[in-house]
Amino acid sequence: MGEIILDVRNQRTAFATGRGMLQAVDGVSFTLERGKTLGVVGESGSGKSVLSRSIMRLLPGTSMTGPGSQILLNGKDLTAMTENQLRRMRGPEMAIVFQDPMTALNPTLSIGKQIMEVLMFHLKMSKRDARAKAVDLLKAVGLPQPDVRVDQYPHQLSGGMRQRVAIAIAIACEPDLLIADEPTTALDVTVQAEILDLLQRMVRERNMAMILITHDMGVVAGRCDDVAVMYAGKIVEKAPVRSLFSETRMPYTAALLSSIPRVTDPPHRKLDAIEGRPPDLINPPPGCPFAPRCRHAEDACNRAVPELTGTADHQWACIKPLNTEAAA
């Protein structure tokens, strides 16, 4: 076992809405070791972004965190920290790359400034050192002509280049944990692989831990150690990437897997191939949240929410898991 960087225990995040309490993340637990990458997969709306913002503690004022929730980063509980303590963690210990690089950079500040301010605040660098380091970082993330680009504004860069800048900002203070929330979803297919490769290289070179969030099973395949599948705010299956593909237990995971685009598919095919819609998170059904859409559902599924069971390595939340005797 390697050094544990992140230990999420029973994270619950809800939002106050006009219709009532929306339980966006509902009892999520996992650990992540240094040097490892955890893939988090799920349909849109399954709570991936809320989970990532819960870890970063970047939630809006209408949010509520469950009383039993704990997030230990390097052994320190983020949920018990003051805003000032958290600020010192964001950057040097944890960092995030957002989905849409078009909106994630400030349009009124040069990209150099946006990198330099992290260095100057956290590493107490002088302006000149910070600028030199910013150019280095831009070079490291593969931005052409870094010494020119450093003075440019986001609108002068392409989407892929902006995402490189966002990555440069994230790794500037060598964080232990990097969260990438659908880092390629908003990008051209042609640059998606480049950005994912870059992330992977950065994580490996700097020996960080990474959470790679995606709704695309295909992205997870080659680039993660473990994979957690999310549905309706819960982790419904978690396993090393190989077992997940070969010994799928959860019907939902199976459905996601069968919707991976194939070479024969027309380009830009949508992944929402699973029929039906995710449940209402304000008034969730009493049983398995996937039951209304599940081909294997039976009466028992509607009675109680299935608990996560299985081995330490491979867990699932289904009373009739696939590929086991119980399913037979």
Partner: peptide
């Protein structure tokens, strides 16, 4: 919001009411 709300436990109802009030 329908039959389901009536069926949920009172505690859940309170939580919803509180959330709506907060909103």
């Amino acid at each position: 919001s329908g039959k389901r709300a009536a069926a949920t436990a009172p505690a859940q109802q309170d939580r919803h009411a509180a959330a709506i009030a907060m909103y």
